[in-house]
């Protein structure tokens, strides 16, 4: 029972990170129908900037997180402007290949700038271990889960209550109608990339703190898993991404604890496939009827 509770907390920890990264995928997909393969690399760069801010500039924790999020928001907007905007009316697969190109580019850029050897991420959060009976919870875990939940609630309020949030929902629902209603679509898309990239960067920092490492290819696997989380929850739906993230994190932790470490990824993929076969648009996805 204790082991189970312990694993439950670990699952929440990993799941909240996946959820943060998945939100970026889902927001971008919702608004321009593009799988932003570069999102995993945005997360990686976010972790590197936090590493630099913490080791070279010795910034306080809040400044480390904020600087990494702001820089990545700017980079995210820049990527959209340079690589994706020219392709907005091109076939969707071309945009997808561009996204793959950007992802490869950023990965190799990181290899050249930061060199391939992994760096040790310093413990940026104050470290204390709380004991609840036999369960141990570190403050890092609590902060990770707390920060993720905080930003998710903030995002939800932003999307639902503010004018820009409403514009985002409008554009993702019907771009042409949104233009007719006087919404600045280009600015809204830029904003979506900024928000998504900032959350991705936060996810990257938390991931690197949890696994104590930063390296150029660190974005690939969590990126893929966050993407799976987004699809599992129903891609384009923000609460779906959060739910998917927590499910994937939980399944991964539980299989690693009780079944097998080597098969954990395969089981994650198998669950995705089974869910999609029964509910082809994801858990929270709506079935749209096809019109002829």
């Amino acid at each position: 029972m204790n082991l189970f509770l312990q694993q439950l907390i670990n699952g929440l920890n990993v799941g909240s990170i996946y959820a943060l990264i998945a939100i970026g995928y889902t927001m971008v997909y919702g608004i321009i129908k593009l799988i932003n393969f570069a999102h995993g690399e945005i997360m990686m760069f976010g972790a590197y900037f936090a590493f630099i801010a913490a080791t070279s500039f010795h910034l306080p924790v809040w400044a480390v997180l904020l600087s990494s999020m702001v820089i990545m928001a700017i980079i995210g907007v820049a990527i959209e402007f340079v690589a994706y905007r020219p392709l907005r009316n091109a076939p969707r697969l071309s945009a997808l290949i561009t996204a793959i190109g950007v992802s490869l580019f950023l990965q190799n850029l990181a290899l050249i700038i930061f060199k391939p050897d992994p760096k040790v991420m310093p413990k940026i959060f104050p470290e204390t271990i709380y004991k609840l009976g036999e369960i141990e919870i570190s403050s890092t875990t609590l902060i990770t889960i707390g920060l993720s939940l905080f930003f998710m609630v903030l995002l939800d309020l932003y999307i639902r209550k503010t004018k820009q949030g409403r514009a985002m929902r409008a554009v993702s629902e019907d771009k042409d109608a949104a233009i007719l209603m006087g919404i600045n679509v280009n600015r809204t898309i830029s904003l979506t990339f900024a928000v998504g990239s900032a959350l991705g960067a936060l996810g990257g920092v938390l991931y690197s703190v949890a696994y104590i490492q930063v390296y150029p290819t660190m974005g690939v696997m969590p990126g893929l898993k966050a993407f799976i989380a987004a699809v599992l929850g129903g891609i384009g739906i923000i609460p779906g991404a959060m739910l998917g993230g927590f499910i994937i994190g939980m399944v991964e932790t539980m299989t690693k604890a009780y079944l097998s470490t080597t098969w954990a990824d395969a089981i994650v993929f198998a669950i995705l496939i089974i869910v999609l076969l029964f509910k082809p648009t994801g858990i929270l996805g709506k079935n749209t009827r096809e019109k002829v």
Partner: peptide, 21 residues
């Protein structure tokens, strides 16, 4: 050597922007 994949990815992006089909 190390710039190889950087060039490759740039070619990919530029190619897709100017000839998406």
């Amino acid at each position: 050597a190390e710039y190889r994949l950087l060039v490759y990815s740039l070619v990919l992006i530029i190619m897709m922007i100017f000839r998406p089909q």
